[in-house]
Design a protein around this nucleic acid. Structure first.
Lengths: 193, 193
DNA sequence: GGAATTTCCTAATCTACTTCATTTTTTATC
DNA sequence: GATAAAAAATGAAGTAGATTAGGAAATTCC
C-alpha cells in the first residue's frame, strides 16, 4: 500500500485506466506532507495545486474586512481542496487553505493537470464528474443556508458529516455553518440537557 | 440566424467542433417554448433536461416547510438552468424551475447527453469547463452570503448582475440574496434618499 | 378599460443571532 | 508537569433582519 493507492481507487471509481496510464498519472502528481497550522494557499499568491487528502484534515477560509473568518470548505481523507477560483483562473487567491491536523496530500499542479488532460482525455471525464458532484454538493449547502435556521443546519451537518464535525475545531464549524462560535456553544449546551 | 446559433457560439467558446459534429449535436437537443409562470421542473418529478436559455428569464427555487421560497438560481440568455441534483442523479426533484418571462429554451435530455458524450468525447471537456465555472460561481456566492450583510450583498449583485436584477421580481431577488422582500424594500428606500 | 390579482411599500413589533467581556477548559510546549 | 496559549463556555446587552398587517401601485386578463 503506497501513498497513491487511495487516489488510484478514487480515480478508478469514475474512469478506467490502463496500467500505463495509471503510472503516467502518478508521475504528474506529488506528495506533500504538511504540519498542523501550516498553509498551502494564502491570499495574494496564485494557487498552483488542487490537493487530494490522503490523510489528515484541511480547511479553506476567507478572512473578511472585519477580520472574521468564514469557512468555505473542509476536506478529510478522500476529499479534494483548493482555492478553486484562484486555481482554475490562475489568479491570486483570496482564501487561506490550512491544515487542521498533520496531513498528507497528493497535489496536482495546474500545468500537470493540463498535460494530463492532453495525454489521457479520460481525465476530462474524471474532472467533469468530480466538479459536477462538487457543484451539486455546494448547491445543497446553499439551499440549506437560505432555508434553515442555525440549529437546523447544525443538526443536518452533525447527521450527514459527523466524521468531520468531530475532528474540526468548533470555531471552524460555526464559521462553516454561518453563525458565531458563541451561538454554537449555546446550541450544544441546549442539546446536552 | 436559427434558434441554435447562440448555443453553437456558446459551445464554440470552449471546444472546436467539426461541421458534422455540430450537426449531430443539434440532433440531440430540442427547442422548447414556455410561457411566463409555467414550470419545467417540479418537486417529486425527475428532472429530465438541462436547459439553455435562448431567450427569456428563468428561476429555480425551493419551497421550504413553512411555505417560503428560496431562489437557488436565475438564468437569462446564454445561461443554463435545471435542478442539478435531480438531473445528474436522475432522482426526484426538490426544486421548481419556472419561467419569469415567456422563454425559449434549448433542452438536452439526460440520455441524449450521455449519447453525446459517447459520440463526441470533446463534450466531456465542454461540460467539465461549464461545471467548473458553475462551481466557482457558486463558491463566490456562498462566501458572499457567509461574510456580507444583506445590503452589501444587494450592492454587489446590482453591480455585477444588474441585467438580471432589472428583469426579475423583487421577491425573487430578495429570496436569492437571502433576506425578506420587505427588507429589500427598506434597502431600496434608504438608497433613494 | 375596469376588475381582479399580483407585486411592492411602509411602519410597528419581535426574535434569532451577534457582540462584548469574563471565566473555564483544553491543548501545546519546553 | 508546569506554564503558556488556544479554544470553548457563559451571560448580558445590542442589532440586523423577520414577521405581521395594512394599503398603494402595477400587471394581468376578460
Amino acid at each position: 500500500m503506497d501513498d497513491f493507492s487511495e487516489i488510484k481507487k478514487y480515480v478508478a471509481k469514475h474512469i478506467q485506466l490502463t496500467e500505463k496510464e495509471e503510472s503516467y498519472f502518478v508521475t504528474q502528481v506529488r506528495i506533500t506532507k504538511i504540519k498542523k497550522k501550516e498553509f498551502i494557499v494564502r491570499p495574494g499568491y496564485t494557487c498552483r495545486f488542487r490537493s487530494y487528502v490522503v490523510k489528515g484534515a484541511m480547511r479553506a477560509y476567507l478572512v473578511d474586512s472585519k477580520g472574521q473568518s468564514h469557512t468555505i470548505a473542509f476536506a478529510i481523507e478522500d476529499w479534494w481542496i483548493s482555492d478553486m477560483n484562484s486555481y482554475l483562473n490562475q489568479e491570486p487567491a483570496t482564501l487561506f487553505v490550512e491544515a487542521l491536523e498533520d496531513s498528507t496530500l497528493i497535489q496536482l499542479d495546474y500545468l500537470s493537470e493540463h498535460r494530463l488532460l492532453e495525454t489521457i482525455p479520460k481525465f476530462e471525464r474524471f474532472f467533469r464528474i468530480v466538479s459536477q458532484r462538487s457543484f451539486a454538493f455546494l448547491q445543497r449547502r446553499m439551499l440549506s443556508n437560505l432555508s434553515k435556521t442555525a440549529e437546523e443546519r447544525y443538526d443536518e451537518f452533525m447527521q450527514k458529516y459527523s466524521a468531520i464535525a468531530n475532528r474540526v475545531p468548533q470555531y471552524a464549524l460555526a464559521s462553516y455553518l454561518g453563525f458565531s462560535t458563541e451561538f454554537l456553544s449555546k446550541i450544544r449546551n441546549k442539546k446536552s440537557k
